[in-house]
Design a protein around this nucleic acid. Structure first.
Length: 397
DNA sequence: TCTGGGGTCCTAGGACCC
DNA sequence: TCTGGGGTCCTAGGACCC
């Protein structure tokens, strides 16, 4: 285990401040696959695509794995083991590009059911120790440890062990006075890392990092900052707010100014409700609205049925129906329509989505089609619009 | 043979109401 | 016959995250 205690004090997290942990599973999908196929340990392995490329048992009883070079078609890398990352392969990279970098890397299809299973296991293990947990995707959570009496590093080691015992998987934990810093921290000593730091560690540990390490600074903002000569968090922290105002919106400027100084007051949200549910699909080949009308229509209806099914299984209904199209030139358009009453009915969703679709001119070939339902409320006791509106009233601080 | 799928949040203009 | 401002909802698009 890599443990980095970056201050000399016994417990670096100040008593008056919060104590927030970010727990992140290491190369989660790939690690779950390695539990299943331990013979792949130490090899470059990537997870990409669906059903095809399932390992096959050969006549001699040996298991045959597909290689990245066997892949043909659209798709991106979902996860790569650290060995594959060493070859330059990263998640979100096009599979074809990855195949050029690491043609011999083992290719495995995505198995979300398995990952969700292990996700539930590790979250349950953590929940047996800490109650204030915020879900932040399938493989990471935030924890509010402020009210616990335990020593920070003792607690962290206990959490890591509980996750390991429940799943056989390792995770990395960052603990800091807020979510922003905890998130940066959990990434510093990956894999199997533990990093604890306080506000006084910011200049030494945080400022040298590239701005891109800040959760919320993406490729666009980073390149804009780079054009201003700002590449590290230190350089961002040294930039006058008035300079940021000239290049970014008001609220984003203030946010940049604060995060560069390690300021983040967001609470750990324990009971978040979903805001939307959606399904989308990228076609194997770009479809023509006229010539492939039948195929498009079938896919469109299937997406509506899937969203409706998701809503019903999880007990929600929504009143804003949206569609999304991506054309062959990657241009993306959306249309939406709000209903008076909430619905989870596939027919109604299909009809409304169809009305949205009529507002799009379909002169280019279609690459992607998606359907989304938002403005959700709990479907229990078939609520009226009025009861849902009440639920949506803003919280008074 | 570039570029998945499921999300959240923000911005911004116009409608509409008070 | 001009001049508002605040607030909310609707719609479209975009950045960003895992």
């Amino acid at each position: 285990m890599n443990i980095a205690l970056t201050t000399s004090s016994v417990d670096p997290v100040n008593l008056q401040s919060r104590r927030i942990a970010h727990l992140d599973m290491d190369a989660f999908y790939a690690s779950v696959e390695l539990l299943r196929y331990p013979e792949l340990r130490g090899l470059p392995v990537v997870i990409a695509g669906r059903d095809e490329h399932q390992p096959v048992i050969q006549a001699d009883g040996q298991r045959h794995f597909f290689r990245l070079r066997d892949y043909a078609g659209r798709g991106v890398i979902t996860t790569a083991t650290y060995e594959a990352r060493a070859l330059g392969v990263h998640s979100a990279m096009g599979v074809m590009k990855a195949a050029k970098l690491a043609p011999d890397a083992v290719l495995l299809p995505v198995d979300f059911a398995a990952y969700r299973h292990y996700s539930r296991l590790f979250k349950a293990a953590v929940a047996s120790i800490v109650t204030r947990i915020e879900d932040s995707g399938i493989d990471e959570i935030y924890l509010d440890l402020s009210d616990l009496p335990d020593d920070t590093s003792v607690l962290a080691i206990r959490l890591k062990q509980a996750v390991k015992d429940a799943t056989g998987l390792s995770c990395s934990i960052g603990i800091a006075p807020n979510k922003l810093l905890a998130k940066i921290c959990s990434d510093l000593e990956k894999p199997d890392g533990l990093t604890i730091l306080g506000l006084s560690d910011i200049p030494q540990r945080i400022w040298p990092l590239p701005v891109r390490k800040i959760n919320g600074i993406g490729p666009k903002a980073a390149s804009k900052l780079a054009s201003l000569g700002i590449t590290t968090i230190a350089e961002l922290a040294q930039t006058e707010l008035s300079v940021l105002y000239r290049h970014f919106g008001r609220s984003y400027s203030i946010w940049l100014y604060e995060v560069s100084r390690g300021v983040d007051h967001r609470p750990v949200i324990v009971d978040a409700e979903p805001k939307s549910m959606s399904r989308e699909t990228t076609f194997e080949r770009d479809l023509d609205a006229r010539r492939d009308r039948q195929e498009l229509s079938i896919a469109f209806t299937a997406l509506c049925e899937q969203v409706a099914d998701d809503l019903r299984r999880k007990g929600y209904a929504g009143r804003t129906i949206s569609i999304k199209l991506r054309f062959d030139n990657f241009q993306t358009v959306t249309r939406d329509l709000s209903l008076v009453v909430h619905t989870a009915d596939p027919i109604r969703i299909r009809r409304t989505a169809g009305e949205c679709l009529r507002r799009v001119s379909l002169d280019k070939k279609i690459r992607l089609l998606g359907v989304k339902v938002s403005g959700l409320c709990a479907a229990s006791s078939t609520p009226t619009t009025e009861t849902c509106r009440q639920r949506e009233l803003p919280l008074i601080p």
